[in-house]
């Protein structure tokens, strides 16, 4: 099982939940599983080229850009974090 941590701006799509548990062997599979539980969230995170360039996806403490991107393999118990930009002031 993979735990996805959801930032405040996307919690309208997860019924207010700050984390969602999904199954998936890669980041791509985990996001597809997340999309089934929170429809609309995939397009906030990905475009046709992969992870949208301003979206920060972390597996554990590392940005997936420094791993294998969407193909990064996930072990059960891994945490994915969607980290928001910093707003205002």
């Amino acid at each position: 099982m993979i735990t996805v941590r959801i930032p405040t701006p996307l919690r309208t799509l997860t019924g207010g939940n700050d984390q969602v548990d999904v199954e998936g062997a890669t980041v791509r599979e985990a996001i597809e599983a997340l999309e089934r539980k929170a429809p609309g969230i995939r397009d906030r995170l990905l475009d046709d080229k992969g992870v949208r360039r301003f979206v920060n996806l972390y597996v554990g403490d590392e940005d997936v850009r420094f791993l294998d991107g969407l193909d990064t393999k996930l072990a059960s118990g891994t945490e994915i974090s969607i980290v928001p930009a910093i707003a205002g002031g």
């Binding site: 405040t8 701006p9 949208r52 360039r53 301003f54 969607i82 928001p84 930009a85 707003a87 205002g88």
Partner: peptide, 21 residues
């Protein structure tokens, strides 16, 4: 204003999804 709630325009606020100043 940023067009979306989850955005990458650091320093700017999407009022609809934030504590409104």
């Amino acid at each position: 204003e940023p067009a979306e709630a989850l955005h990458g325009l650091e320093g700017l606020k999407h009022m609809g999804s934030s504590i409104v100043p």
